[in-house]
């Protein structure tokens, strides 16, 4: 499959802070990729570098097999952080500036305004819009000229639940049209509902990447209490179907492999001569797995 974006060991250092640390990844045509990570993990800095608004301290990247800078950006609809527009210009003129910059036709403006539900406000000055409307306008500006790639940084910022659902639908529709989409967010739910693939960042480093379903699946977790927690810990270490996640109030938190049930574990422990006081199945959400992942030490 054609590579749309190739990022090769980019780093960005601001004084003593390393915002992005030797990050490499690639995105193929038609991919919908989520860049996930807590605040300060380097998501916006990474997107700013690949969109040429900030210069990388080291490393390189290229779009469309060797392009970068303004030539590449004209083929990308992008939204970075909060919406930026001239407050004194109306929506139509603001989008006209985007259309001219991108070399797109000005007749595309009514279409994109209609798509985000702002057609009736086309003559209103930007400063008169609510935060949600500003965000919708920013989405509209990314769609000007029907670009083949969308790069969206926190696209649902400031939107109400209805607005979030609408923006999500717009993004999904674009994905269905075969657009390549890179979407950054710190909200797992937002990424999970739109992106089949994720890159998880922590302190500027990629700590995991791949299919969401593979990285973050809903596995069975049990909480076990025993009189001798140390022997229980040693014994569980010998069971390849179990993964020790940690301790919680003197009890052990254990993840079970698929098809290995809590009762099977209980039987196995009994056969090993260990009796447990309590074995409580726990539902482990994607959110908790994500938090666990980004909470891992840097060397993982």
């Amino acid at each position: 499959m054609e590579t749309i974006l190739n990022v090769n060991s980019i780093s960005k250092v601001f004084g003593s802070i390393t915002a992005v640390d030797r990050l490499s990844f690639s995105v193929h045509r038609g991919d919908v990729v989520g860049v996930l990570g807590p605040n300060g993990s380097g998501k916006t800095t990474t997107l700013s570098i690949i969109l040429s608004v900030i210069n990388a301290s080291s490393g390189d990247f290229s779009w469309f097999n060797g392009l970068k800078g303004e030539v590449a950006n004209r083929r990308i609809g992008s939204l970075l952080e909060v919406p930026y527009f001239y407050p004194y210009l109306n929506l139509e003129r603001n989008l006209m500036i985007t259309a001219l910059a991108r070399g797109a036709g000005e007749n595309d403006i009514p279409r994109v305004l209609d798509e985000v539900g702002l057609l009736k406000r086309s003559k209103s000055a930007f400063y008169t819009l609510s935060l949600g409307m500003k965000q919708r306008l920013a989405i509209a500006s990314t769609l000007i000229g029907d670009p083949e790639v969308l790069v969206l940084d926190e696209p649902t910022n400031g939107l109400d639940p209805e607005g979030i659902a609408e923006v999500r639908d717009i993004i999904k529709n674009q994905a269905l049209k075969g657009k390549t989409i890179i979407m950054a967010s710190h909200i797992l739910d937002e990424v999970e509902k739109v992106c089949p693939n994720v890159i998880i960042l922590k302190k500027g480093k990629c700590i995991a990447s791949g299919k969401v379903a593979e990285l973050l699946s809903e596995k069975q977790v049990v909480l076990i209490e025993s009189d001798d927690i140390e022997i229980l810990t040693i014994q569980l270490g010998q069971n390849s179907n179990c993964k020790l996640l940690g301790r919680e109030n003197g009890k052990l938190l254990v993840e079970l492999k698929d098809n290995y049930s809590p009762s099977a574990l209980n039987n196995w422990l009994f056969s090993c001569g260990i009796s447990v006081n309590r074995l409580e199945p726990r539902h482990r959400t994607l959110e908790s797995q994500f938090l666990e992942l980004v909470g891992k030490p840097e060397n993982i």
Partner: peptide, 13 residues
């Protein structure tokens, strides 16, 4: 207004 940033994003060198 951070419009230099926006214009670079939109394809102005």
């Amino acid at each position: 207004f951070r419009m230099f940033r926006k214009q670079i994003l939109d394809g102005v060198s």
